[in-house]
């Protein structure tokens, strides 16, 4: 009995040591989008990356709850690639030296704000605000603030004396998507948050951010738990059956993240 226990403890420790001394993950097998066939692809459940990966021939799709877990798995060689929004990919690449992205990406996608199907009034209000912000350069200023080169230089602040008399506007998001929305200590910050603050300032609402799983955002909007869903959400036909979308506030595209050769 003694032997079994010590043997068990020893093998655990050995495994722990193996991992801590960083036995290197297997070499990167993906060099083009075509290479994805038959590979193991990591995504975050319910994202457009998930939908796209499902269509890759013979590929195994691992649906993580967060992209950061998928990145961890990629680095450890548990998966071969990740399909992810380019801006989010950039944010991960900045902090992880051993991964990179393929130069070829997928087609452009439009991000928009999700609103409850019947609520066309809110939809037109938001569209109006977005147009104003786009016209006066606020949107560009906010986007620049999260750009790697100009990061932090042009933060959005609510103008003094802004009227918030129309009450709260609840925004459902999933704070796992840098630079769109992510956690900074206890705060949730990011491009989408600043943009929605600017929209609310325009319209006289007070923004309240609710963090949840990405795949819960649309149900939350449908059930009225949240007024809007803003989470780097791509407009897709499937989603349009379930929610209204505002006008596009930014465009992006999906890329493939892999280990460095």
């Amino acid at each position: 009995m003694k032997k079994t226990i010590t043997g068990f403890a020893a093998s655990l420790m050995l495994a722990a040591m193996l991992s801590s001394c960083g036995a290197s993950a297997k070499p990167n097998p993906v060099h083009s989008i075509d290479d994805l066939k038959g590979k193991t692809i990591g995504v975050q459940l319910g994202t457009t990356g998930d939908t796209l990966a499902e269509d890759v021939e013979d590929a195994t799709v691992e649906k993580y709850n967060k992209y950061s877990d998928a990145v961890q798995a990629l680095k450890q060689g548990k998966i071969d690639a990740i399909i992810i929004d380019s801006d989010t990919a950039e944010a991960f690449l900045r902090n992880n030296q051993d991964i990179t992205k393929l130069s070829e990406g997928y087609a452009d996608e439009s991000y928009a704000i999700a609103i409850k199907l019947e609520n066309t009034a809110l939809q037109s209000e938001i569209n109006g605000a977005l147009k104003t912000l786009s016209d006066n350069g606020t949107l560009k200023q906010i986007k620049d603030n999260y750009d790697s080169e100009n990061a932090g230089k042009s933060a959005y602040t609510t103008p003094e004396g802004t009227d918030h008399s129309k009450g709260k506007l609840v925004m459902a998001t999933n704070a796992e998507f840098p630079p769109y929305e992510f956690k900074n200590g206890a705060d949730i910050i990011g491009f989408d948050i600043d943009m929605m603050n600017a929209v609310c300032d325009q319209l006289g609402y007070e923004l309240q951010v609710e963090d949840m799983a990405f795949d819960s955002i649309i149900p939350a909007v449908q059930s009225g738990k949240a007024d809007v869903g803003v989470a780097g959400m791509t407009v897709t036909p499937d989603r349009e059956k379930n929610v209204l979308f505002s006008d596009t506030y930014t465009t992006t595209h999906l890329v493939v993240m892999v280990r460095k050769d």
Partner: peptide, 18 residues
């Protein structure tokens, strides 16, 4: 990222939004 029964439900949820 194991597709067990709970995750199976989550996957359907992420596709149908219900």
């Amino acid at each position: 990222a194991i597709a067990d029964i709970t995750k199976g439900g989550d996957i359907i949820r992420s596709q149908t939004f219900s």
